[in-house]
């Protein structure tokens, strides 16, 4: 059936944006929960935030911002039919995304090492507000991490499609949509950084 429909890039992008709407609201729900709890426990959140590693957080921000840049550059390259360049850019994005995950896992590892994980005996001794802080921290960064993994898989496929010419100068809507998703993941992290690391 679908073969009979004309190709509708605008429609595809609209569909993607609508999907991003749901993602925004999904994280929006968590941001609502965060602000609610932060309003109740300002002191505990401040204390909890001071236990996070700011340096790693900031490095990760720059990593993600750069990976966003390379995706958008890859689209420019495809538009200009510069296949090699496009592949290099996408490859860089994948490497940066993996770097982000590795740094994140070190960060989580350190927290686990200090006994700061949900349901841990150490956490149970902390004041209630701080338990909530770490609950939110692990939930939100964890969910974001899952999105990074999903985004990386999508972009991996895109790289493959660029290599096999399924994505080319006159047909790159999938790359655009994949890019949109990756940028949204980036935007979410832009919010997570100050909420947990800087201004808690």
């Amino acid at each position: 059936m679908s073969g009979h429909l004309h190709r509708d890039d605008f429609g595809s992008r609209l569909g993607m944006w609508l999907f991003l709407v749901t993602e925004m609201v999904l994280f929006g729900g968590l941001f609502i929960a965060y602000s609610y709890m932060r309003y109740r426990y300002p002191g505990e959140f401040h204390h909890g935030g001071s236990e996070l590693n700011v340096t790693l957080g900031v490095i990760n921000t720059v990593v993600l911002l750069t990976s966003s840049l390379t995706v958008v550059l890859a689209i420019v390259a495809v538009q200009r039919a510069e296949k090699r360049r496009a592949m290099t850019f996408l490859g860089t994005t994948l490497v940066l995304g993996l770097t982000f995950l590795v740094i994140k896992s070190f960060e989580w590892g350190a927290k686990f090492h200090h006994g700061l994980y949900p349901n841990s005996p150490h956490l149970a001794t902390l004041p209630p507000g701080e338990q909530v802080f770490f609950g939110l921290y692990f939930t939100m960064t964890g969910l974001h991490g899952l999105h990074v993994v999903a985004g990386l898989s999508v972009l991996g496929v895109m790289l493959w499609w660029v290599a096999t010419d399924r994505i080319r100068q006159d047909r790159y809507i999938h790359l655009e949509n994949g890019g949109l998703y990756w940028h949204l993941v980036d935007v979410i992290w832009i919010f997570l950084l100050p909420l947990f690391y800087l201004a808690a």
Binding site: E23, V25, G29, L30, A33, M37, P118, G135, F138, T139
Partner: peptide, 27 residues
């Protein structure tokens, strides 16, 4: 999506005890 995330939180709460809704943990 709001209910989706809320339900995810319930699951996380049941398995990992993140404490956002649990009054015993400050939720």
């Amino acid at each position: 999506p709001i209910v989706a995330i809320t339900l995810v939180l319930v699951i996380l709460e049941r398995f990992f005890g993140i404490g956002i809704f649990d009054p015993a943990k400050g939720g």
